[in-house]
Design a protein around this nucleic acid. Structure first.
Length: 282
DNA sequence: AGTTAAACCTGGTTGC
DNA sequence: TGCAACCAGGTTTAAC
């Protein structure tokens, strides 16, 4: 599922409504990727602060009597989505959990519910963002794509240190976070860069174009509410609309919108890569 | 250091 | 209609 735009859409959907909410209880369904890492006593009675995002992770900070009291690190995996069921103090405003509802955070502002059929997602307690297990999960993450400190020159420099194909580098997230399979393909197409181009062989100009393309792609997806291939929806249950805008992703054999040559599909690192041999050069 | 594969899971689609 | 094979937004770990 969820790449940066979908995670950010989710963050924006829960941030305001949950600000200052008091945790009333926790419901756990089937195990997710990792155990929660704390008992409900650590969560109940705490209040939620502003929801942050790092890469594809959400951070829900908790406080007690005005003091930071750790937080929950949430990842949506491949098929996860969060829904917020408003309901005042009604603890069961979300209704009984369905087969794929694996985590409920019941608060006095409503119930935050994680639905994740494939259970690749995670909800993990950490005493702070820079403490385990959060620190370990975030340790290898690269730059935020919209961080102004990430300049074309900085990106170029980082890309020069990698010899992998550029698609693999984007997907890896150790240079720049946020692009998953859809947006990596789309950003490369927009930039005119071949997915098999070696990272360290991109010129400074092309690195700059790639950064611009990545930002434009992610921003457009964000504006459209993300992509919904099957599972994803925002916190109100609405689907994203970006998938209809995709130039290459999922369009094998269909004409490239720019040059009309058929979109090709190859496999890199076990993932499908879609590209146009006409307008993406090595 | 790189690339690849397998692992974690469920469900939808495709093809025989 | 049934069933097997394959595919899917991510990430971690192990192996060549």
């Amino acid at each position: 599922m969820p790449e940066l735009p979908e995670v950010e859409v989710t963050r924006q959907g829960i941030d305001e409504p949950l600000r200052g909410a008091r945790v009333l209880g926790v419901r756990l369904g089937k195990a997710l990727r990792w155990p929660l890492g704390c008992g409900s006593a650590r969560l109940v009675g705490a209040t939620l602060g502003p929801v942050a995002r790092r890469g594809k992770y959400l951070w829900l900070p908790l406080a007690r009597e005005g003091h930071a009291a750790g937080g929950l690190l949430v990842h949506l995996g491949m098929s996860g989505s969060l829904a917020l069921h408003p309901g005042g103090a009604a603890a069961d405003s979300a209704g009984a959990p369905g087969a794929h509802d694996h985590f409920d955070l019941v608060t006095d502002h409503g119930t935050l519910r994680l639905t994740d059929p494939r259970r690749f997602g995670a909800v993990v307690y950490a005493p702070a963002l820079d403490r385990a297990p959060a620190s370990k999960l975030l340790a290898r993450l690269g730059a935020e794509p919209f961080d102004p400190a990430l300049t074309a020159a900085k990106l170029h420099e980082a890309l020069k240190a990698r010899r992998s194909p550029i698609k693999a580098v984007l997907l890896g997230g150790e240079v720049v976070v946020g692009a998953g399979n859809i947006y990596a393909c789309e950003a490369l197409h927009r930039a005119g860069v071949h997915p098999l181009a070696r990272s360290d062989r991109l010129s400074a100009a092309r690195a700059g174009r790639l950064l611009q393309a990545l930002r434009a792609t992610l921003a457009q997806a964000l504006a459209l509410g993300g992509s919904t291939l099957r599972d994803f929806s925002d916190v109100h249950g609405a689907a994203g609309a970006y998938q209809a805008e995709a130039a290459v992703y999922g369009r094998e054999g269909l004409p490239c919108p720019r040059c009309a040559r058929p979109v090709r599909r190859i496999v890199q690192a076990g993932r499908s890569t879609f590209y146009c041999a006409g307008c993406q050069r090595r």
